[in-house]
Design a protein around this nucleic acid. Structure first.
Lengths: 227, 227
DNA sequence: ATAATAGTGTCTTTAAGACAGTATACA
DNA sequence: TGTATACTGTCTTAAAGACACTATTAT
């Protein structure tokens, strides 16, 4: 066995989601070079072995370059590889899946002309580069699954949030209404959230604000929400 | 942005599990070259862009070389990367997690001197190369999780199996006893298994044989078995 | 007071855990 | 006939779904 194999091109791309006005959105950048010039693509690029300690750092760095901040949530999605997905030859892409609160990003993103949020429901009408549509669909599926058994969607919200906000985000992701009560029970049972002193007004009775306890990790519930 | 980055070395390694005599085992190979000469390592190697259509094919091909057959189950586990995990420099490894029935493999494996099954519980006493111990632990965790909400462990059994065999395999994986009844309910509810005509004797009343329906995909249950 | 939103009480439903009881095979 | 293993029945338990009811705020 020799180490002199043709080493295929390795890239790191991210599917960064947020929820804006009850719609699931994904961050895309307009390609300036061939191939797929002018098409929308996932933000990403090559590892920089000088500054990246691993591929997570690569994904994080590339996202920060586009949004001005590190994503609140980042996890590996899947490696996609093959001889035909890039016209330049065999390619290997590590896709990440990430979440941010749109409130945190909005100011920066308008100033960067090349990146913008696109509603996931509008992707059919969008000219997407490579196999990025399939990658986004994989990421969406993973996000939907995780939403059924964890509180992952809180990373689409600011640090302090109300149950109603969380409900809206979850419903945007799984595309089904859920019971407010079930959410409250999960928040209570998980013991990872703190009740803040402040409440916030919202048209009627003031709403309790919650935060993830400092240092607390998300827990997985034993049962899924029903679809 | 240029494509002239230092492209780090990319390898594909697999954690192939089976259950033998109620013990979870992993397939390891003895390293012949430096670094870590003589230490045990995960079977794997480089993509061959000539013959592999993607990284799944690489993993499958490398496992077939060691066991004589393609794994019954294969899925991506995780990409591990960093400057220090291989003394030769920055490396990127795509780890797979795979299952086979030990009955199918045993004859071949004894003939290949360099590969052997090691009990996962004995790994502390084993001299393992690189960060392969951590990778195996990740794979074990994933297998344990999947076992709680799916029938994935059937891929550690021959095509026809009894409930008792399945129970043994599951208990070896999650390291807890489970209720036979819960298993039967899941087999029934999933509607993906067929009752074979034959039964098999086992010391008492003869046991029903089951098979995965041809072409049927595994389903995920809405609820976990309890730990 | 009314409307709007927040939060609670509680009954139903679903699927797993526990375990006793029945069935079948072989010595 | 006895013992070992396979299978069934059924009661309990845990957590989600449904939904009515109460609480609090702004107008």
């Amino acid at each position: 066995m020799s180490t002199e194999y043709t080493n295929p091109l390795f890239t790191v791309d991210s599917v960064l989601f947020t929820v804006k006005n009850g719609q699931l959105m994904v961050l895309l950048v307009k390609r300036a070079q061939a191939p797929f010039t002018g098409a929308w693509a996932l933000p990403g690029g090559f590892i920089d072995v000088e500054q990246d300690t691993n591929t997570d750092a690569t994904a994080s760095r590339k996202l920060e370059a586009k949004t001005g901040l590190k994503p609140a949530y980042l996890e590996q999605l899947q490696v996609i590889s093959g001889p035909d997905r890039d016209p330049r030859g065999f390619s290997v892409t590590l896709a990440y899946f990430a979440l941010v609160a749109c409130q945190d990003v909005s100011p920066q993103i308008s100033s960067v002309e090349s990146a913008s949020w696109i509603a996931v429901s509008d992707l059919e009408k969008t000219n997407l580069a490579f196999d990025h549509l399939q990658i986004i669909q994989m990421a969406k599926q993973r996000l939907q699954q995780k939403t059924l058994y964890s509180m992952t969607p809180i990373f689409c919200l600011p640090a302090q949030f109300t149950i109603a906000q969380l409900k809206t985000v979850i419903e945007a992701i799984i595309e089904k209404p859920i019971q407010r009560k079930s959410l409250m029970r999960r928040i209570e049972a998980s013991r990872i959230f703190e009740i803040r002193e402040e409440k916030v007004s919202s048209g009627g009775r003031m709403a309790q604000l919650y935060t993830l306890k400092p240092g607390a990790d998300l827990v997985n519930f034993e049962r899924n929400l029903s679809l």
